[in-house]
Design a protein around this nucleic acid. Sequence first.
DNA 1: AATGAATGAGCCTTCATTCAT
DNA 2: GATGAATGAAGGCTCATTCAT
Lengths: 191, 191, 191, 191
Amino acid sequence: MPRPSRWDDVVAAAAKVFSEKGFGGSSLEDVAREVGMLKGSLYNYISSKEDLLFAVVTPPAQRLLDQARELSETDLPASEKLRRLTRTHVEIIHEYFPYVNVYVHEIVGRQVSDEWSEMDREYLRLLEGILAEGEKQGLFAPGLPRRVAALSLVGALNWMTRWYRPGDPAAAQAIADQITDVFLSGLLSRH
Amino acid sequence: MPRPSRWDDVVAAAAKVFSEKGFGGSSLEDVAREVGMLKGSLYNYISSKEDLLFAVVTPPAQRLLDQARELSETDLPASEKLRRLTRTHVEIIHEYFPYVNVYVHEIVGRQVSDEWSEMDREYLRLLEGILAEGEKQGLFAPGLPRRVAALSLVGALNWMTRWYRPGDPAAAQAIADQITDVFLSGLLSRH
Amino acid sequence: MPRPSRWDDVVAAAAKVFSEKGFGGSSLEDVAREVGMLKGSLYNYISSKEDLLFAVVTPPAQRLLDQARELSETDLPASEKLRRLTRTHVEIIHEYFPYVNVYVHEIVGRQVSDEWSEMDREYLRLLEGILAEGEKQGLFAPGLPRRVAALSLVGALNWMTRWYRPGDPAAAQAIADQITDVFLSGLLSRH
Amino acid sequence: MPRPSRWDDVVAAAAKVFSEKGFGGSSLEDVAREVGMLKGSLYNYISSKEDLLFAVVTPPAQRLLDQARELSETDLPASEKLRRLTRTHVEIIHEYFPYVNVYVHEIVGRQVSDEWSEMDREYLRLLEGILAEGEKQGLFAPGLPRRVAALSLVGALNWMTRWYRPGDPAAAQAIADQITDVFLSGLLSRH
DNA sequence: AATGAATGAGCCTTCATTCAT
DNA sequence: GATGAATGAAGGCTCATTCAT
């Protein structure tokens, strides 16, 4: 994958277009128009439309996974890990919104390729690991349905692409903390 | 919309095909092959491909909304309403899986049409209403981020379409209860 | 391969166009224009451009091979077999001219597919068989370079597509006999 | 046509590529890759793709025609002229294989241009001249179908591009003599 | 109701060619 | 001389839709 001068423009344009109209609903002509070139010219940068999809989707996915790995290896208490992971996830949604939107709609949870499925699985594994750790530490309730809890958190976070629109970064962080609070403390009042 | 003899077959086939390949990725020929007719014949039942999408997606959406309305008007405690709403949501995912899958991927959270957006909004409103009620009753913690909590629950539920595959109905109900537990009690242990 | 009403028209048009402009140099639009339909409509008959190539090329090739097989099994003297095989070859060139032209340019001697290569080889084998038979019968000169002779005859015949244009069938037969005479008797005068 | 440093490399690469994939089936990028430059750079050497075709095809064609002319003017007996012409033709196929292959597939017998058609015609005329000469000398059988005989020999020779692959030069010469023998003496045994 | 065929628009991709650097 | 990038025109193929039978 070459990275000549306008590579980033091309990927950004693709992210925008795919995010708005869906991958299948976007034509390369749409993308090209967004960059300001003709559709044929795109092939100086990519070798297929799918290439472009992966180029759009790789950076945020990779980055999220990397940060999840790092975080897992720290000594923080599980609840703090969970809070930070959620923050990171939301930050990435905030910062790379169209990219993540494409990722959520076209890749995650679909059987697109083994490589991507494995990334999905690893992220989930790390998250479940944090839950197990918290349980062992006595921080989290014993007998948690860890898998379902992890999938629910991921779902709640990825679902943000359906209602959140990037604006004030502080708002994003607030949302992250609210989600964390809901998952940590639950809805019931503690008398 | 008339309902001639094989109408249900047509919609079921469309649900299956759209669910597997996405709306945009499916051709009417795919659908027709699934029913066992030729693509031209589909136009005896529908007047456009979008028609089919709405036909697939309307029953589960309508049903979920109806049940949410009914439930809202009962006298049950908010926590019980929440548990039942979650169960219903999961049951519908379980029973109408391909239909719901299409709904989640192609309709909800997208700005498809005013009518659908209004259905989305109402469902969310009902859910937020339950949260507010629970708070007023002293059942739920005061100062809950109601909107984010409601969106997170909806996200967690709809996200099931990405990992859940219908099998044992009891398993579905178990999942529903686990999700409810996580949202009601949270992850933290209560010593 | 379906054979609906205008199938023959489609193949005939393809033969004409491919014969005139080469397979690679012809567009499906050219073919469609020749039949009087739009290029997309061709896909009601074929499933790829290559399909059309094989459809054009199969009938004359199959027919020639069939007749060569039949002829081989007769009791005629080898020289007569050779004369008749040549006549048949020329007749097929005459009758199916554009089809054969495409065959000669795009298929024979190219490594297009195993199936076609095998047909080529079998035809050559039958021809060499006739030469061997004639030699054994004492009709043909002993020690003939059978392979080269067979390839030369095939070359001389197929090369007709480069200079012969169908007209009077009698002319075609005359040419066939002249070629046979050259190959049987050679150029040298027999004093 | 200027001949800068890597002109020969360019033409050789084109010959190889065109020979393997056909002129229409080859892209300039294929050719460029074979030389080790980018396709744009080719235009420092040529001014169009067709240019390249003619550059590939001219040397062997010119050389064959030149040698045929020379040979015609000698005092050798017609049968010897024929043997030598055949040898030369085969040698050129052997030595310039990809070039000749391109020539045979893309030029000869096609109505590519008046210039090329005239070269074809002249070669054939020289060959027919040899046949006429031999007949007048009493060497060749009277009443020969000269045109058909000449076309058959040319066909047999050019057809070599479909089955011959350059290897041992002695093998090439053997083939040339076998072809000559077949055309001179014919297949029938002379008792 | 169903079919076979046709339409027309659009899409991904290729490619000869040009050109500023 | 070479390069990277852009152009513009096709080309093969798909597909929603229409329609006569």
